[in-house]
Write a protein that binds this DNA or RNA. Structure first.
Length: 494
RNA sequence: GGCGAGUUGGCGGAGUGGUUACGCAGCGGAUUGCAAAUCCGUGUACACCAGUUCGAUUCUGGUACUCGCCUCCA
């Protein structure tokens, strides 16, 4: 069995991963609040944990992993969006949820096994809040709010390495009259008539932010499970609060045990070296990239995925157009010679790289090695004999483990372009030039083709033209086909 | 102010107590009418200052700089 090592935020160390139950490895990842299109930063945890999901399925078996990623469909940002647009909340959350699924599938993310919506787990949240009150970890302020008492949980702050005293000293906490401690956070809050709400023991209201993940993970994965993931911006307060709620609700208020054993956090994403923000004009959504935006060419989902995988998940990642361009060229080439190959088993080296704390970059390096080996073979390099078919199959299987070179993501590279007219013309010019030694016509046509993104290869056997990754058919419109060409064609000279 | 991360060759980006990362770009050669593609060869990097060590880019301490979180933004 492959040994997987993961960096656990809880211990700040890379640890050997041992599941609670190898027959059912359980992972929970915090999903989106559905009020708008996912920006490219949102895609990072999705891709990172998708790779982990694929690795776990590879190691423990596809039917022995349960991956849960929620949709937060009750939130004040959604309320604000509904009010501003005049549309209903449900309309907005349904639409945004579908967008999210479409966009994440477009970057090659498998659907998790469960995708619970927060609003379908309100009774479970209320039950958990009642338990917390009964155990003395939460209190009602009598005005419709229920708050979690951070002082009732001595390990509060352990995940993010903060103490309650430090944070209060930081003076960034909101002071409110109804809190026993400034760090106490809301489990339940009252709703007005025009806000979404549910009846509860504390009146008509809605849940606070953190309780949903505690309630849904408990419901779907149990009191204890293996992995909990998310962006590192969620470490505090969201994950800290989840831990406090869950541990206290399930009798682990003194040891901090139970709940998730391994906490994984991905680093943030930047764009061209800067934090993505609307004011800098470098803010864009996954859909913007997929469809093309602001005059920029569209970026295939597979290319987005490749770029993300080229940086380790615990390091800040910089999205640049340059990286996307390089990734596109690489994938184009890999696709061109692996087209139609049936995947077998991934290379042990790829599995090893991923098992070492998801070293996706190292896995890509290994993929490069496998690819260049095949490439060298294709080009007739002098090399020791090997099982060529097996090598192709292993290459594709290895890429598949990373979610690359899958059939679903291949459409962008499959546009068949008929360039036969141009290759015949080029061939004709060339044979004539060989007689006359005047290559100007050949060179002129060649430059036009190159400018349009066509790969031109002339060998002694003939001319070969292929549309490259940046092929632009419109640039070929101006290339003249001389009338004599038709004559040749009709005369059977070509 | 508190917590945390990072600083690697032209660029991107892994990794390691002593030996080649890898990719892209570059350079030389083969090949080509010229190219492209491909093949062969090529670069000796690890912020700074101390310390530990036979030996540190890799461990320890410090300095500088960058960045993230502490604002229901992944």
């Amino acid at each position: 069995m492959t040994v997987i090592k993961l960096t656990n935020t809880k211990t700040r160390k890379k640890e050997v991963f041992t599941p609670i139950d190898a027959d059912n490895v359980r992972m929970y990842v915090c999903g989106p609040t559905v009020y708008d299109r996912a920006h490219i930063g949102n895609a990072r945890p999705v891709i990172v944990f998708d790779v982990l999901y694929r690795l776990l399925r590879h190691v423990y078996g596809a039917d022995h992993v349960t991956y849960v990623r929620n949709f937060t469909d009750v939130d004040d940002k959604i309320n604000a969006r509904a009010e501003a647009s005049g549309r209903s909340i449900r309309e907005i959350t349904d639409e945004t949820t579908q967008w999210y699924l479409d966009d994440m599938r477009a970057v090659g993310a498998l659907d998790p096994n469960e995708m619970p919506r927060a609003t379908e787990y309100i009774p479970q949240m209320i039950a958990m809040i009642e338990t917390l009150i009964a155990k003395g970890h939460a209190y009602s302020d009598g005005a419709g709010h229920v708050l979690f008492s951070v002082n009732s949980y001595e390990k509060y702050g352990a995940l993010s390495g903060r103490s309650v005293d430090d944070m209060i000293a930081g003076a960034r906490v909101e002071v409110a009259d109804n809190k026993r401690d400034p760090m106490d956070f809301v489990l339940w809050k009252p709703s007005s008539d025009d806000q979404p709400g549910w009846d509860s023991p504390w009146g008509y209201g809605r849940p606070g932010w953190h309780i949903e993940c505690s309630a849904m993970s408990y419901e779907l994965l149990g009191e204890s499970f293996d992995i909990h993931g998310g962006g590192n911006d969620l470490m505090f307060p969201h994950h800290e609060n989840e831990i406090a709620q869950s541990c206290c609700a399930h009798g682990h208020d003194h040891d901090g045990g139970g709940f998730a054993n391994y906490w994984l956090h991905n680093e943030m994403l930047q764009v061209e070296g800067k934090k993505m923000s609307k004011s800098l004009g470098n803010f864009f959504t996954v859909r913007d990239l997929l469809d093309g935006h602001d005059g920029m060419a569209s970026v295939p989902g597979e290319v987005i995925r490749f770029v993300f995988l080229s940086t380790h998940y615990r390091k800040p990642m910089d999205w640049t157009a340059e990286k996307a361009e390089q990734a596109k060229k690489t994938l184009w080439k890999w696709r061109s010679f692996s087209n139609g190959v049936v995947a077998s088993k991934p290379s042990p080296e790829i599995v090893k790289a991923l098992a070492d704390d998801l070293n996706t970059h190292d896995a890509l390096s290994e993929l490069h090695r496998l690819a260049s080996n095949l490439d060298a073979f294709e080009n007739g390099a002098d090399m020791p004999p090997f099982d060529v078919d097996a090598a192709y199959s292993e290459f594709v299987a290895s890429a598949n483990l990373l979610g690359l070179l899958t059939p679903e993501l291949g459409r962008w590279a499959e546009e068949a372009v008929d360039l036969s007219v141009f290759s015949m013309l080029l061939e004709a010019y060339r044979s004539r030039a060989k007689e006359t030694k005047d290559f100007s016509e050949v060179d002129s046509l060649k430059s036009s083709l190159l400018a349009a993104g066509v790969e031109v290869r002339m060998t002694k056997d003939g001319v070969e033209l292929d549309a490259g990754p940046n092929f632009d058919a419109s640039k070929l419109e101006g290339v003249g086909i001389p009338p004599v060409f038709d004559t040749w064609k009709q005369g059977g000279l070509l």
